[in-house]
Design a protein around this nucleic acid. Structure first.
Lengths: 362, 362
DNA sequence: ATTAGCACTCACGCTCTTTAAGTGCTAAAT
DNA sequence: ATTTAGCACTTAAAGAGCGTGAGTGCTAAT
């Protein structure tokens, strides 16, 4: 089916769109009579009934029971999203809010994503999520030993663009130069190395470079490896989970429990999002059972990748009932993802040259 | 009423306890007949009825409707908690789990609290919360400038026992020595200082100490002040919110929505917890309307302070229906809070060995 | 003071009925 | 060849009526 668009007459498309729009608005099945009031539809309820019956045969509409109106099927939503959706532009107020919030933040992935995901939840009134992909090869690009007192120091590691810190408590006194020296030895010998590559030859090399302070190497390397194993780049955050409670779809506590339990299964989400990521530049929309996770029967997931320097570094998205305001959500997710990507490129840590704006901040 | 304990005959206390125990167990109103099966109660149902009627007059019991059994009132729970509760000891398995989880963690407030709050939710099957108090006087005890490339560096600040980092992007090249020098200047002149104390004389002093790199001072100080203002020590985390769904008390979606909305109002919680904190060493129990926040009608909040070096640095607690397993929850919260306090004292960053605080912070 | 006995209350679950919204089909109209 | 009016049919939801049972409060006997 190369272009199902042409399978439907204009009138059928109009009616399908009208049904879905109405259903999105009030959540109830839509009957033929109600549609006669639609300004663009000028035929009688009987005609509409005939058309709706055909749309049902085609799989785009469903009947909860004989004497009810029609509701969109998943295929119906899919058609709607693919062909019938007119573009929605955020209001100026919304755009301003978005810009104001994103631009005042420092261009750090973490904080900017946090802001964005909160904004997404607020603007759409659905649950928003942010994803940072798993870092497969965890390596430290910079080390720093910060000496806190005679027996304590803090190990600071730059992993990707994230900082991981670890307190270290030593039995032996830590001389001031030892900390500084250890920092530089680490930076010279142990950057870009995975935990498993900390082998004995390397450790011996480091020990000889440390001279009289060689006793510090082993505990520090242990701490580094532990920190690396603790560091789990992948992260999935949900924001505004309770917003789902506004929608009758989730009035059933059992369904609610299912979806909340789902939110705990972060790995599944990461799978879905990374596997679906075929479309790196566009909006991804997964309606109902299109989601790998089965429980999401009545829910839709909409997300878009965040691109930094041409590489996807995460995603931001929305989860809500299949009956969601697609126009608004798509527009919001799109703008937010673009906004975040732009903010990251503007002055992110990886962008080096002097092309960016003047100040350290902004 | 200095000691309401003596207002009640032993038999009334026994019956009250039996009612509450039974109600906690199955969540349903308890009738007189059911109590005759209680092994310690050896009178007839009629007698129990009379006693229960009196307990109702005293305000300890309530009747949902005429033909139902009795349920405990808030005052009933209060009496129960204050006078009737026998001590519960965690099982060895539980103690081992607790120890295993807490001791393997580094003694960092953040990570140990995270572990503890997750454990609390898991062990009690209620929602757990962790609180870190607002730091009133935000000062940096250590600075470190980590140079990332010619135009980028990262500012690392130790605030209390937390690390705050900030990327800085510069137009001008950052020489290697400049970063190191700036670190040491900052540590010499700007530790223990609040944002408002970064005044012009101080900045000028720093600039003269930086010599030819004096142009770096202003942007860095700006970044420091911004970081300080962004840094909000106070933090409240909830864990296992969806566990509430297991309890019929929260089967009503409206109530659920109320309590989830409550979880968003973190400031209120911080107020409640810091204002109730009269009892720094004991367990705090707030039943139903005893909570400042009104919505918590049917919920109980139990928490205990975390003490580090004699100073409260946070709290850990449980929220659940008023009908909760007080024995277990109290024992769990108590052990966890003690465990965390102990772990922090054992090797925390502030514990300096024999000498005492010979150091920039505190 | 305790208890057996009994009348009374009231939520809960059951069936039965009514209501109203909406459909499908047929036959007439355009 | 569509479209439409009309009508019989279906069905969920809402309400009415009724028996059931757990539980109470009271009274009188122990």
């Amino acid at each position: 089916m190369p272009d199902r668009n042409h399978d439907l007459s204009e009138r059928k498309k109009l009616i399908l769109k009208a049904v879905i729009d109405a259903h999105i608005k009030n959540g109830e099945p839509v009957g033929s009579k109600a549609l006669t009031k639609h300004e663009l539809i000028s035929c009688s309820s009987a005609t509409i009934r005939n058309e709706m019956a055909e749309l049902e045969n085609l799989g785009y509409l469903e009947q909860p029971h004989t004497s009810a109106g029609r509701i969109p099927s998943e295929a119906g939503y899919r058609f709607y999203v693919d062909w019938l959706l007119d573009r929605y532009n955020l209001t100026n107020a919304e755009i301003n809010e978005l810009k104001a919030n994103l631009s005042q933040k420092q261009a750090e992935l973490d904080s900017i994503m946090d802001t964005a995901v909160k904004l997404a939840a607020k603007m759409t009134n659905y649950t928003a999520l942010s994803v940072k992909p798993k870092i497969l090869r965890i390596t430290v690009s910079r080390y720093e030993i910060m000496r806190i007192d005679d027996y304590t120091c803090m190990l600071i590691m730059l992993i990707g663009s994230m900082v991981k810190t670890k307190y270290m408590h030593s039995e032996a006194q830590i001389p001031v130069q030892a900390a500084a020296q250890l920092s530089s030895v680490l930076n010279m010998t142990a950057t870009g190395i995975t935990a498993s590559e900390f082998n004995m030859p390397l450790i011996m090399k480091m020990e000889s470079a440390m001279g009289e302070y060689d006793y510090m190497v082993t505990p520090v390397v242990k701490a580094i490896c532990q920190a690396m194993s603790e560091f789990d780049g992948s992260d999935l955050k949900f924001e505004g989970v309770n917003r789902l409670l506004s929608y009758p779809e989730y009035y059933d506590v059992d369904r609610l429990r299912e979806i909340l339990a789902l939110f705990e299964r972060k790995d599944d989400f990461l799978d879905v999002i990374s596997n679906t990521g075929g479309d790196k530049n566009g909006i991804n929309i997964l309606i109902g059972r299109e989601n790998v996770v089965k429980v999401m029967d009545n829910s839709t997931l909409i997300f878009k990748s965040i691109i930094q320097d041409g590489v996807p570094v995460g995603a931001i998205g929305i989860i809500g009932p299949t009956r969601m305001d697609y126009k608004r959500v798509i527009a919001t997710v799109d703008s937010l993802a673009k906004g975040v990507s732009a903010a990251l490129d503007r002055g992110g840590p990886k962008k080096i040259k002097g092309s960016g704006p003047g100040d350290a901040e902004r």
